[in-house]
Design a binder for these strands. Structure first.
Lengths: 142, 142
DNA sequence: AGAATAAAAGATATATTTGTCTTCTATTAA
DNA sequence: TTAATAGAAGACAAATATATCTTTTATTCT
């Protein structure tokens, strides 16, 4: 499992929120959880984290809910870093803390391009593009 | 984290055992754990799993210990599958169970080549090659 | 101002992964 | 054939990730 379950939920939630935002709508925890097939309370916690980390924004009270300031300037890597940190792009595949280009583990040279590609793909994909793909191709989130 | 901690330990342990096997030696749990920097009892459990799955072989009693039948015919993917299963090569990156080429999630087409490359790298790398790299380049396992 | 709405925050609960400890079984060698 | 060695197996413990529940705070609408 490349990403934690929390991070998987997070990406799906952000894409759903952004799809609403582009229609000028805010959306609540319950609807989000229903849309992405995740437990409501746990999803609330994740949305809280994303809001604290400025990936999403929220407002309380009637007509409140979650939204995203600028879907085109938030990239998947921002969500991944908010939830799981940067380690998946840097950590040694066999768990050696001191593994590096200078002192590589036996798998280092095989793994580097894979991790780099992962970072590149997450860095290049904006939430806005995800929403577009989502709407154009009848993609789904649960 | 691409691989579980158990799987990381497993790969390091198998490489260490194989390095001993090519010198016609068997090696015990305590020495293995010391060599790869892992907790002894937990390492015992992992070695047990690897033996049950035929990745390693073992014998009890004095002069007993772990060894590997044919390092050249065991590939990293065998260790990964023994410990973590096949999911890391197939599971949807955002956690959708029904994600497939026909009904892809918004990240499917980006992730496929990465997962394929991961599988290819693990499939092409034999334990014997790992040992060679390990010995030739002063690689390390902890 | 008061009631309703909705997220934030904190305390708990459950499940999984990681790690430990004790006993059992097989093997070897004296 | 007995003592020592070493893995196998099972019970238990700790840490982390996932999930739930309750209370608080902010906002809106009447």
């Amino acid at each position: 499992m490349i990403l934690s379950k929390s991070c998987e939920y997070a990406i799906r939630a952000v894409v759903y929120v952004a799809a609403k935002t582009v229609k000028e709508e805010r959306v609540g925890i319950i609807e989000i959880a229903e849309a992405i097939g995740s437990p409501v309370a746990f999803t609330g916690k994740i949305l809280q984290t994303l809001t604290r980390k400025k990936v999403l924004a929220s407002s309380k009270g009637p007509n409140g809910g979650f939204y995203i300031i600028d879907p085109a300037s938030v990239y998947l890597i921002d969500i991944v870093r908010a939830m799981d940190g940067n380690e998946i792009f840097t950590a040694c595949v066999i768990g050696l803390t001191t593994c590096s280009a200078e002192r590589p583990c036996p798998m280092h040279h095989q793994m580097k391009p894979i991790r780099d590609q992962l970072r590149i793909d997450f860095s290049n994909r904006s939430v806005y593009e995800m929403v577009q793909a989502f709407e154009e191709n009848n993609y789904f989130l649960k």
